[in-house]
């Protein structure tokens, strides 16, 4: 076959797939969001933004992302560095650390519910140790901090590994000679991490952060399991518009707002962690 058209032929199937199952539905959702039956309008956006739960769910979503993602990043970096230093058993440790990835987010939420609920493990332990006289209902409106903490913990437990695997692969690509050179020229282990590992890991950090931040804005099932209506988030509100209020125009508008936030953050991450021309490995 002609070598000039071969690449296009090869990407044709996936292009068709993406058009049919991503681009087309996206166009449909956009149409729904920008219309109420009588042409182009921003009414749906006005409606969802002016609803009293919108600011609080936006704030909760951003707060949660701001609390969870940095912790996950630090943990993933620490774990990736540790795994990389291991001589033996590296793969088995990596497999164990990535187990939570295989569990659905709802199931993960339920596991942490089993810990925090009134008859859960945490209460049994605390009353067993005599710290409390009777079980406490942690996941109630009286303890918003605990609700937030439980959701954050569940998210960190569940989704750190996705960053870990990307960073492990990225660290493995950095040639050892750079570390030896840094050591000879007087860089301490911490300096080697900040001056060599981190800057040379930028492409992997980009991927890991973009993926993780987008997923953080889509948080839903873990919040539903642990917080219920106590902790409204954007995705939960979208669900409510679509299935409780049967207002698919408003749901579509919410979905586009989440998409907009995700794109904005992706651009910021790509910009901040960009690698200058000529500075690649």
């Amino acid at each position: 076959m002609n070598a000039r058209i071969l690449p296009y032929v090869l990407i044709l199937p996936v292009t068709l797939f993406l058009c049919l199952f991503f681009l087309y539905p996206f166009v449909l959702v956009s149409k729904q969001a920008f219309s109420t039956g009588a042409g182009f309008t921003l009414d749906n956006f006005r409606e969802v933004v002016s609803y009293w739960k919108f600011p609080i769910s936006m704030q909760n979503t951003l707060l949660l992302a701001a609390a969870v993602v940095p912790v996950q990043l630090a943990l993933a970096l620490l774990m990736a560095t540790m795994v990389n230093k291991m001589q033996k058993g590296r793969d088995i440790v990596l497999y164990i650390w990535t187990i939570p990835l295989g569990i659905s987010d709802l199931a993960a939420g339920i596991i942490w519910l089993a810990i925090f609920e009134q008859s859960g493990f945490l209460n049994s332990m605390m009353s067993g140790l005599g710290i409390v006289d009777q079980p406490v209902n942690f996941l109630s409106y009286q303890h918003p901090g605990v609700v937030f903490l439980a959701i954050a913990l569940a998210e960190i437990w569940r989704a750190t590994a996705i960053m870990l695997v990307i960073l492990v692969a990225g660290i493995g690509l950095i040639p050892k000679e750079y570390y030896e050179a840094a050591e000879v020229f007087g860089a301490s282990p911490w300096k080697r991490f900040t001056r060599i590992t981190l800057p040379m890991l930028r492409p992997s950090l980009q991927t890991a952060l973009v993926l993780r931040v987008i997923l953080a804005f889509e948080i839903f099932a873990v919040v539903a399991a642990l917080g219920g209506t106590l902790f409204p988030v954007l995705m939960g509100e979208t669900y409510a518009y679509q299935f409780d209020l049967l207002n698919s125009g408003a749901a579509a508008a919410m979905a586009l707002i989440i998409l907009g936030i995700s794109i904005a953050f992706t651009l910021v991450i790509l910009r901040v962690l960009r690698v200058p021309k000529g500075a690649t490995i």
């Binding site: 000679e177 050179a181 000879v184 020229f185 490995i281």
Partner: peptide
């Protein structure tokens, strides 16, 4: 440790840090 030995080294594959400018490479130590 290497930094306290009064040595410096030239590596076979140069190990010139790709993320630093030539100035910062020479000035690294």
């Amino acid at each position: 440790s290497p930094k306290d030995r009064g040595i410096s080294m030239v590596f076979q594959n140069y190990a010139v840090f790709p993320h630093l400018s030539v100035f910062e490479n020479i000035g690294f130590g």
